[in-house]
Design a protein around this nucleic acid. Structure first.
Lengths: 205, 205
DNA sequence: TGTACATCAGTGAACGCGCGTTCACTGATGTAC
DNA sequence: TGTACATCAGTGAACGCGCGTTCACTGATGTAC
């Protein structure tokens, strides 16, 4: 794992980085094991010293994506404390920020067509991300009267869905022109209306 | 366009159908012009009598998808009249029903990586779908006091985003197991909460 | 400090494959007379 | 009704390509003595 003493330095990570750059540039469909190898300055065969194959390389990209993603979400949530509402809204903004700042990771995670059960590590990464979001929802739902409180899992699924939908439909290349609003404004307004519907924001104003 | 008198009958549509079946079965990544040709019982070269190439064939799948989609949405909306609210909710349900019933079309439209500007016909189809959704939102927004009424375009973008997100995250193969709720319930509840936030549903109950 | 040796990351050539696309063709169909 | 001809949808062979993957190898690095 050290950075010296290897022929290359740290080829494993260099390959992941090259793959991410490729995915970001050409989409997950345009990604090629051979081209990733070339991007890392190495022969395609060298990839097999570090990964079982093409899918395994993509999976590692997604794993690292879920790690960053969960950390960002967790940080945003904790940083918004002690107001559960502020924490939750920060989480929503962090989602979009992640998709913008780490498009390669995002595509590897959600658009590469890879199953989240491809690897135990990937399944664990996806599960952790899920947990972080549900925890945020859980904390917020404490402020809803018990009898009209939806399950936290449903609640987080709604916000995740809207966030993902905004990213896919309005924060990507060409179709982005389809809306006169920025994805950020769109998502913030949408989550605001949703939270009002839950009674977590005052109905007026 | 007739069904007789041709060597094949109507190869153009047969190719579209074969492509849709392939996309549905193997995902948009697994789709191949050659395999679509084989599926239609024809040599790959024959495809070029009817399409400019691979992308053009996918584009036609998406065009037909947008047609069905817009018709379904339009029908659902009109059928829910005169209650704008019922009409709108029917539209939401129709979205999910479309994704379920026409997975090949849906993937061609949203997951194939094709630009909606690939063809004038495709751009027109996507624009029409957009219009249908905005019209539904517009009708519903009449019931919101003018000063707190969000633009209909934003409003429809929110619902479209949540719908799309639910489909992508919870109505697909493996990740579908990630939620204990059915996509239908998830979406219906989500839209309900959202509409409550807009003041279109009573805050209690 | 110097030599012999083991390790193993990366090489380079080769593989079989299926892809999208082209081209000259053929042969069934429809039309003119 | 019958013959000659034009049309053009689909054929079949071929192309160049880049893919993922394999394999025996090589040569730089680290270690033992």
């Amino acid at each position: 794992m050290g950075k010296r003493g290897y022929h290359h330095g740290n080829l494993r990570q260099a390959l992941v980085d090259a793959a991410l750059a490729l995915i970001q540039e050409k989409g997950p469909q345009g990604f090629t094991l051979s081209e990733a190898a070339k991007g890392a300055g190495v022969t395609p065969a060298a990839v097999y010293r570090h990964f079982a194959g093409r899918d395994d390389l993509i999976a590692e990209c997604a794993v690292q994506g879920f790690e960053i993603f969960s950390d960002l979400m967790d940080y945003a949530f904790n940083n918004g404390q002690p107001s559960a509402l502020a924490a939750f809204e920060a989480t929503g903004r962090a989602y979009l920020a992640f998709a913008r700042r780490y498009p390669g990771h995002y595509m590897a995670m959600f658009e590469s067509g890879i199953s989240h059960n491809q690897t135990p590590e990937l399944a664990a990464g996806a599960a952790r991300a899920n947990l972080v979001l549900e925890r945020a929802a859980e904390a917020l739902s404490q402020h809803i009267p018990k009898d009209k409180r939806p399950p936290a899992a449903m609640f987080s699924a709604h916000v995740w869905s809207m966030s993902h939908g905004v990213v896919e439909l309005y924060a990507r290349g060409a179709p982005g022109a389809r809306s006169p609003f920025s994805p950020e404004d769109l998502l913030e307004a949408g989550i605001g209306i949703y939270l009002r519907g839950l009674g977590l924001l005052p109905p007026d104003c």
